[in-house]
Design a protein around this nucleic acid. Structure first.
Lengths: 219, 219
DNA sequence: GTCTATAAATAGATAGAC
DNA sequence: GTCTATCTATTTATAGAC
């Protein structure tokens, strides 16, 4: 995380300062959200003044864009290294990495909620990132099916399992933010192992549109 | 939801106005969060001035407390009407109710993230509410076990399943906030049905502390 | 490239008239 | 009980010296 982009070019010190600002912005936006996270706070942490930040970024929104880009770079690294079930197993090490850089999880959750309104500067980014995650999850699940790692599922089930996995990851992250004592790695690892086992025995969850439930197994 | 507390006492009109303020505060805090949600916005929606709000509540934090109390009243209603698996089946109608009053879901998620810092005014409330939900879920799960509705699980599994259910509910809610077109009721209903089926066949998920996974089933 | 000083807008909160 | 007017603090952003 530190010492990235140690450029030897003509403006190396400028870039280092800029990287420092972005690094602190990740933490501040993660902690307080984009709206409430102030340039003042970011400036103090960077050992700088708000006015100096405005020399590096035209406005606050530009800084947010840079933060999101920085965040994305750190996340898409392992995406191509694993295929099928191996990809889902790798979510454990992804989680380890996220825990080590807590600012990113804070930022992700905070922005996911804050940017749910369409007029938020980060809204298009958050929506696009969510759709990309859905695409990645469904692709690897289909890959696992096509290669015989797990039995077939229909399209609705594949889509639902992807939604469910994202929900579990996000939901556990919320619990971890609320109480850092919980073992996030264990909870996510347990789910990943369990869901892979479930997929292998053909136990994908299939959404059934409003079947007028009879509660027939109630007593 | 409307017309609660139609008091016939000496100060009935005052209470009606106060209720109106709280009602609008739920929506504003839900939409923008507590910090960014302004008294100005609440005042305009209530057809009133910010100064008038301060006559009803000593400060902004007092208003938040009232909002949380109001929210809680609406939620704990059905808690005692169902036991064991029937309680988990009732989560479907709870979801229907939540969808009908979107402001509460917004408020819950927004505050869960925003109030994760210990210095937030709503932090103790959010933590306590989370622990209460854990207690309710584990109690009903144990009730289902004790009454023979489902096979036994060890304590760690019961706890994990409660964490997991909360994560799924929260995670799906996030997705719904980000894209209101998804069928939240179907997604939650599908999980509830599936997890009950899974519990019945003795398929509770059991967390296994760091067993130095061998990846032996990798392919 | 960073600083000090400051502008312009908005926040929560108070005073006092009615 | 609600209003107008105002206070203080904080926000993003700009101007200009160094």
């Amino acid at each position: 995380m530190q010492e990235v982009k140690r450029a030897r070019g003509p403006y190396r010190s400028g870039l280092k300062r800029r990287a420092k600002i972005v690094e602190q912005a990740v933490e501040v936006f993660g902690r307080y959200g984009y709206s409430k996270g102030s340039l003042q706070e970011i400036a103090i942490r960077s050992g700088i003044t708000p006015a100096a930040i405005m020399r590096h970024f035209d406005n606050k929104e530009e800084l947010l864009v840079e933060v999101l880009r920085h965040w994305d770079d750190a996340q898409v690294a392992d995406e191509k290294r694993y295929q099928g079930l191996a990809y889902f197993r790798s979510l454990r090490s992804v989680t380890e990495n996220n825990i080590a850089h807590r600012g990113f999880i804070d930022l992700y959750l905070t922005l996911s909620i804050e940017a749910s309104r369409a007029d938020h500067p980060a809204h298009p980014f958050v929506v696009e990132r969510y759709e990309r995650t859905m695409e990645v999850f469904t692709r690897h699940l289909r890959h696992a099916i096509d290669n015989g790692e797990i039995p077939a599922m229909d399209d609705d089930t594949v889509t639902y399992e992807a939604h469910l996995l994202i929900a579990v990851l996000d939901g556990f992250a919320i619990q971890w933010m609320l109480d850092a004592r919980i073992d996030l790695l264990l909870m996510i690892g347990t789910y990943v192992d369990a869901v892979i086992t479930r997929w292998k025995i053909g136990g994908g969850y299939r959404p059934e549109p409003a079947a007028e439930k009879q509660d027939q197994d109630a007593g």
